[in-house]
């Protein structure tokens, strides 16, 4: 006979743990009451209905949940929402400027850099972060530094084409 059960503490009740989190999301100050085990990704999707940020694996293996946090691209699935108290988060819903698409968004459409569209928000947020980091100096380096974002439709070339259309590498050092 085989029994499956993962022995675990079941005593910690939600009420004891609820915390107030205040962050700025896409420029708007937002407050949530959350237990600490809620990921930033689930806070965005379930609590704020900002479903543009996608869940593709929930384990840091695909990049679909990429958001900008205090100017850096991070994976919202491996981030506890409570740990981002007082942070500033930009999601795909905040990338366009008052309805005017970001140049990357326009380039993604123009280059057909997506098919199903599910990895797209993560690709775009990641590319925004990659451009701000400014480390990539050529196409091969852009490919490498964008490799944390998987695309199952196989739009890889067009994604890099779209980014190269917008990204002007700075010469560092």
């Amino acid at each position: 006979m085989e029994t499956t059960q993962l022995s675990r503490n079941t005593n910690t009740s939600k009420i004891d743990c609820i915390r107030t989190v205040t962050f700025t999301i896409n420029g708007q100050s937002t407050q949530l009451q959350l237990p600490p085990w809620v990921s930033l990704l689930d806070a965005l999707r379930h609590h704020l209905h900002l479903t543009g940020t996608k869940k593709g694996c929930d384990h840091g293996q695909c990049g679909a949940c990429t958001v900008m946090c205090d100017g850096k691209r991070i994976l919202s699935c491996l981030t506890l929402a409570v740990s981002k108290d007082q942070s500033s988060i930009t999601t795909i819903e905040g990338i366009a400027d008052n309805g005017e698409l970001h140049p990357l968004q326009k380039a993604f459409i123009e280059y057909d850099a997506f098919q199903c569209g599910y990895c797209t928000p993560g690709q775009i947020c990641s590319a925004v972060g990659m451009m701000q980091e400014g480390k990539a100096q050529n196409r091969a380096e852009v490919q490498e530094l964008m490799s944390g974002n998987l695309c199952r439709c196989g739009a890889n070339s067009q994604i890099i084409d779209a980014i190269m259309e917008v990204y002007i590498p700075e010469t560092h050092e």
């Binding site: 691209r73 990659m130 944390g148």
Partner: peptide, 9 residues
């Protein structure tokens, strides 16, 4: 190692 996002975290 890992990806740019993970290295940022």
């Amino acid at each position: 190692g890992a990806s740019a996002q993970i290295r940022n975290m």
